[in-house]
Amino acid sequence: MNDTAKIYEQGEYNFAYLDEQTKRMIRRAILKGIAIPGYQVPFASREMPMPYGWGTGGVQVTASILGEDDCLKMIDQGSDDTTNAVSLRGFFEKTAGVRTTHETAEASVIQTRHRIPEKDLREDQILVFQVPIPEPLRFLEPRETETRKMHALEDYGLMHVKLYEDIAKNGHIATTYAYPVKVNDRYVMDPSPTPKFDNPKIDEMAALQLYGAGREKRIYAIPPYTKVKSLDFEDYPFEVQKFDKPCGLCGAQNVYLDEVILDDKGGRMFVCSDSDFCEERRAAGHVGPMAGNPAAAQISGAQAEELTQ
């Protein structure tokens, strides 16, 4: 009996909610996904006690790989304390009783919606993505039979048609999230709704990446240190968003920023989307240009207070 197969008293949840047979089925799908990087493996997605769109795919993947000594971090849009992250963290605290954390470095399993932590991940960490629409060709080709055939035959011209349209209409590739990538020179993959800012992090990442789409019943994976190339044109190479200002609170450069409205008089600031990264920097004494602003201090103070609880 492995450590996830603990039998609880009647009326209690099985470890991490899912029953053992389901976990085995999902683990098989994960292993197949790892064996064929970027390939979408169908799996018998279960009903979860949360609506589709809340990360039912990611939750099932996490539930299947979690062990009792794991430490779990939940990210929603980069933050640890927004609704989705709080709810899903609570879900696993209740059903698996594992340790949870906000700190990227401490976590062994990180489930995320959208963002990849700014801090480099390690080989002993696993990153789980919640995926709404796993098929990168879906909006170009509605037939599933046809998209499967296109993947099988590496018939990916259509993907570039989309990028062509972007340039023709906007003068540059305007896709900013779910930016298509080619994994290991073979499968074109949709890195879920991650901003393209994070695409370079997917490439040659030390951590294992697992992608789960609950409604669409697909799992795919990128093993550690796998080549992942963002699609582009020779004369319009792939590039990430640039922010002209540093983080308002911690002064970090070259990180992904969120806009925060401070008052109803047009006051706003840009802060790190990765809240753990920002807090760590502030704790280390980094100060951003907005840190002295009372409204901004209130926001960062509120975050710090929640942390200490």
Partner: peptide, 14 residues
């Protein structure tokens, strides 16, 4: 018009 070109590996927008 460009789709076929891209399908056979053309990767230069211009």
């Amino acid at each position: 018009v460009g789709e076929r070109l891209m399908a056979i590996g053309d990767r230069h927008y211009g």
